[in-house]
Amino acid sequence: MSFLAENIRYLRTQLNKSQQTVASSLLITRGRYAKYEDGASEPPLEILVRISRFFHVSIDLLLSVDLRKVPLNEIIQLPDNRIVFPIKVNEHGNNCIEIIPHKAQMGYLSSYSDPEYIENLSTLSIPFLRNGKFRAFPTEGDSMPPHQNGSFIIAQYVENLNDLKCGRTYIWVTRNEGITYKRLKAVEENALLLCADNPIYAPYSIELQELIEVWEYSCSIATEEFEQGILSPDSAQLMFLMEELKNDVQQIKKKLL
């Protein structure tokens, strides 16, 4: 089912534009444009591209998402307007953080742009997480101690890849691997080098074109009690912590200069 007719009618009224104004911008007649809004006919690809550029909304969104359900004045837009993130708050003004449950991880990859899917997720609010869009993702495996299997990483959406910082941890949503939590080791020409904090796992690269979303670590929630000794660092972990401390000191020095 395409939402095109409803979406372009809704967007035009939101902009307070007449059908003639939009049609003139698209270089077509008003009657032809009216048929698109009525659903009597569908625009060819060339006109669809013009419509997308006029409203500054991607073709994917125009066709597959009911924009009437999205608060357009309270959204973060991803690159190329692929999807939109409504920023919802509770009665106390705190952000509503959507929780991606373990059983819904695979569904997230196919439904992350569906407002109805996001609206049906459970939410939580943390008072000190206010500015930005946050989401809670489950972790699996032992690659990122001390976060145990079953913990949740609450992370903030990264709007611009230029804001990524080597040494920081992120939730990476990719077409091939799905959802993974790893540390950014290096930025390559057309890829990113990621590494686990557990030294038994080797670093690996992901191509930029495979990225769907990136979320920067903000805090975590442990759902199970830590086992005794789990936080006892071995030599490899100590070396990693020392390197991280050195990087932090260098960043502080740069800010003071």
Rank of each mutant, 00 (worst) to 15 (best):
E46Q: 10
L45M: 11
E119I: 00
T29P: 01
L48P: 08
E46M: 03
P79Y: 01
T13K: 15
E119W: 07
K88S: 10
F55E: 07
G107W: 03
L109W: 10
F54P: 03
I8L: 09
V70W: 01
S125W: 03
F128Y: 15
N90V: 03
I87P: 00
L27Y: 10
N73M: 09
D142I: 11
L78N: 02
A34M: 08
S18N: 10
A136M: 02
K17T: 00
I99R: 07
L129K: 07
S122I: 00
G141K: 06
F137A: 00
A136V: 03
S143K: 05
L67N: 09
G31Y: 06
C96M: 15
F137R: 01
S143T: 08
G132R: 01
N16C: 04
L109N: 04
N120G: 09
E119K: 12
N120D: 12
I47H: 10
N131Q: 15
G39F: 04
S125H: 05
S24T: 14
N94F: 12
G107Q: 09
E91L: 13
S110E: 13
E119R: 11
V49R: 12
L45I: 13
V89H: 13
N120M: 13
L26T: 00
E46W: 06
G141W: 05
S122R: 13
E116V: 14
L63D: 02
S110A: 13
T13V: 07
Q19G: 12
G107Y: 05
Y108H: 15
V22E: 02
L124T: 14
Q19P: 00
L121K: 03
F54G: 01
L72F: 06
T13M: 07
